[in-house]
Design a protein around this nucleic acid. Structure first.
Length: 336
RNA sequence: CUAAUGGAAGC
């Protein structure tokens, strides 16, 4: 059983869920880890419904879940934003006596917060007898994502006061909140703590720093953070492109995009949105149209309404009302 | 052997 479990996991790691499923189906005997590997594999790739149905199959086969199972199942519920499914699992958690488990607790809280119920999530975290960094991060990022950026910093300080060391994930949430609020002083202070903690090399940290400095009006500092990392990913590059656009530096944004292409990094829909905004803000009409085209032809990306909105905006600003109208009519997406 | 939290645009 154990070697089959290891193989299932190997397939999952390489993204080959079909073979993982096949292996799973062909096993004559399974243990809890077998079921867990399957549930976790499915939810990791956002096949959340399927993960949940494996879980119910597991239940029907008479297996009791452990904290590994419940963590993955709740992740699936969070992915679905399903309060309904989540509450059912919560009831089950209570029945099995897992409510004070560290992993199950943070998973429950995460599920509630992702599903928009910050209060219930917070209640779960508060009821936990022990809280580790993940539990704190769950609370902090939950508040940040539900529009309570103002209390994120307080929460962060409480966490430190409780004797916990913030990690890169904590920093990302806190910096993002500073960015949201455009509170430069606080952002700088956290940045200093990031450096002191030796956490400044993470891609997530860097991209959140870039956008925080940009939103606070310090494009220079965004650039500095950007330059300090040599192997930036698509999100980092997109952040920097957006920062340039935000500051009306359309040409710079385009240059960055070209460098990004030369570096072999794959631009995504957000990269293009940032780029199109940059063009739009700077009245770079030809370029904007060109990029929308490139996005479809070369990258095979489907423009969303926001992409079209950008270009329509750009055409309108450039005084090309007929072209703008033509674009609205030809969009494969419904206008608003 | 299997498990929970994070980053870019817009809003």
């Amino acid at each position: 059983i154990m070697s089959c479990n290891i193989m299932i996991n190997g397939f999952v790691q390489s993204g080959d869920l079909d073979n993982a499923q096949k292996m799973f189906d062909e096993m004559p005997e399974r243990n809890v880890a077998t079921w867990n590997a399957m549930v976790s594999g499915l939810t990791q790739f956002e096949f959340n419904e399927q993960g949940l149905s494996i879980f119910s199959e597991m239940h029907k086969s008479g297996f009791l879940p452990d904290d590994f199972t419940l963590g993955s199942v709740l992740r699936g519920c969070a992915g679905l934003r399903s309060l309904h499914a989540g509450r059912q699992v919560h009831a089950y958690v209570m029945k099995c006596g897992f409510q004070f488990n560290l992993i199950v607790g943070s998973s429950l809280a995460h599920m509630y917060m992702k599903s928009g119920s910050l209060e219930e999530g917070e209640k779960v975290i508060k009821s936990m007898p022990i809280r580790n960094v993940v539990a704190w991060n769950t609370l902090i990022s939950g508040k940040a994502q539900n529009g309570f950026s103002e209390v994120v910093l307080d929460q962060y300080n409480i966490m430190k006061h409780a004797g916990l060391k913030p990690d890169k994930i904590t920093f990302v949430s806190v910096i993002s909140s500073c960015s949201e609020l455009a509170t430069l002083g606080q952002g700088q202070q956290i940045h200093a703590e990031i450096i002191k903690a030796g956490a400044s090399s993470g891609a997530g940290v860097v991209s959140s720093l870039i956008s925080m400095y940009s939103r606070c009006g310090c494009l220079e500092d965004s650039m500095k953070a950007f330059m300090e990392i040599e192997d930036g990913d698509a999100v980092i590059w997109s952040s920097m492109i957006a920062a340039c656009g935000f500051h009306g530096k359309g040409e710079e944004a385009i240059k960055l995009f070209e460098q990004m292409e030369q570096g072999g990094l794959k631009a995504n829909d957000v990269t293009f949105l940032s780029l199109l905004y940059a063009c739009s803000h700077c009245g770079l009409k030809e370029k904007g149209i060109e990029f929308l085209d490139l996005m479809v032809e070369k990258y095979g990306l489907k423009p969303r309404l926001e992409h079209y909105t950008c270009v329509v905006d750009l055409l309108g600003r450039s005084g090309c009302l007929e072209e703008a109208e033509a674009m609205i009519r030809s969009m494969p997406v419904k206008a608003d």
